[in-house]
């Protein structure tokens, strides 16, 4: 099943195009890893796919309510406990399996601890556990393994693999090798924007350049 199809996609940051002419598809059970140097526009691209930012040109075709997005900020409230944080997002997204998610990310022992007392890596694990309770098929992950130790990274790779096996898909930007069998890599370098004036200006910086 096709979960995501992008065609002729251009995204801009600060009103200037960083990527253009990008096209790719993602089917159920697939993982796609975005590669490219810093500043190429991986984060911007992921935000576009998540629907937080409109693309400058091109089309993104996705199923309705398919995306679960995880970026640098995990949306964790320090005043709530780990379990409460997770339960909140489960209710908002209408998903289930909070207990299983806690187990998968090895957070069971911390469940009643206020999230403010967690370390950076533990917070990250909670943020990734949130993905599991959304019940959404397409995971859009921006540097998911930042501040994870080796054991947690392996654990996370396991979770992603289980998600793929369950008919999900993952689109991620990461610099490390997660060791997910069959994961495709997409190098964004060839799609770096040329700087030529676009046919239809999107931002102020394009309209007046």
């Amino acid at each position: 099943m096709r979960l995501l199809a992008a065609e002729g996609l251009a995204v801009s940051r600060g009103g200037l195009r960083v990527i253009e002419g990008l096209g790719f598809t993602l089917d159920a059970g697939e993982a796609l890893v975005l590669r490219g140097p810093n500043g190429i526009g991986k984060t911007t691209l992921l935000r576009c796919i998540a629907g937080l930012q409109p693309p400058a040109a091109g089309s993104i075709v996705l199923a309705e309510d398919a995306v679960a997005y995880a970026a640098h900020a995990d949306g964790i409230k320090p005043a709530l406990s780990v379990a409460e944080n997770l339960a909140f997002w489960a209710r908002v997204f209408g998903g289930t399996g909070a207990a299983a998610a806690l187990r998968a990310m090895d957070l069971e022992a911390l469940a009643d601890r206020p999230a403010g007392a967690l370390s950076a890596g533990q917070k990250r694990r909670l943020g990734l556990a949130r993905l599991m309770v959304t019940g959404r098929p397409l995971w859009v992950l921006d540097e998911p393994t930042v501040s994870l130790d080796a054991a947690s990274t392996l654990r996370f790779a396991e979770v992603v693999r289980a998600h793929l096996d369950g008919g999900g898909a993952a689109l991620m930007a990461t610099h490390i090798e997660l060791g997910i069998a069959g994961a495709r890599a997409l190098d964004l370098t060839p799609y770096r924007a040329s700087g030529a004036a676009p046919a239809r200006p999107h931002s102020f910086n394009e309209a007046f350049a």
Binding site: A50, G51, L52, D65, V67, A68, Y69, A71, H72, A73, D74, G75, I76, K77, W89, V92, F93, G94, R130
Partner: peptide
């Protein structure tokens, strides 16, 4: 600040 708003914007 903590990214909840991004997540709420992608929520159903």
């Amino acid at each position: 600040e903590d990214g909840s708003l991004d997540l709420l914007a992608t929520a159903p």
